[in-house]
C-alpha cells in the first residue's frame, strides 16, 4: 500500500485583538483531534495575526471541511480565517 500523503494545513487568523480567540480556536482543534504543531502570533498594523501549523492525520476532517467550519467560526467571532494545505505554502516559499 502506498503511504498516505500527510494532511497538514496552515491557518491564519486575522482580526481585532479579542479575549478568547486563541482558546476558541484551539478547543475546536482539540475537539476534532487536530494537533497544533506550531503556533505563532503577533500584531501587524493593529491587526491580530495568528498562524498555526496543523496536523490533521488523526482527524476525520479533510482540509476542505476544516476550511468550511473555520470560516463559520470566523464569522461568529469576527475574524478572517484563511486555510491552506501546507503543500502550497511549501511550494511557494521553499525551493
Amino acid at each position: 500500500m502506498t503511504k498516505k500523503p500527510k494532511k497538514r494545513a496552515i491557518i491564519a487568523v486575522l482580526g481585532k485583538d479579542k479575549i478568547g480567540t486563541v482558546s476558541k480556536i484551539s478547543s475546536f482543534m482539540a475537539k476534532n483531534s487536530i494537533n497544533i504543531e506550531e503556533i505563532s502570533q503577533t500584531i501587524i498594523k493593529d491587526i491580530f495575526t495568528m498562524i498555526m501549523l496543523l496536523d490533521l492525520e488523526k482527524s476525520d476532517l479533510t482540509i476542505a471541511e476544516l476550511s468550511k467550519k473555520l470560516s463559520k467560526i470566523g464569522g461568529e467571532i469576527g475574524h478572517e480565517i484563511h486555510v491552506h494545505d501546507e503543500k502550497i505554502i511549501k511550494a511557494m516559499h521553499r525551493i
Binding site: 496552515i10 506550531e38 505563532s40 503577533t42 501587524i44 501549523l53 511549501k90 511557494m92
Partner: peptide, 9 residues
C-alpha cells in the same frame, strides 16, 4: 516556526 508569518501572509 517552519514558515515565517511574512511568508504566509
Amino acid at each position: 516556526m517552519k514558515y515565517s508569518i511574512e511568508e504566509i501572509l
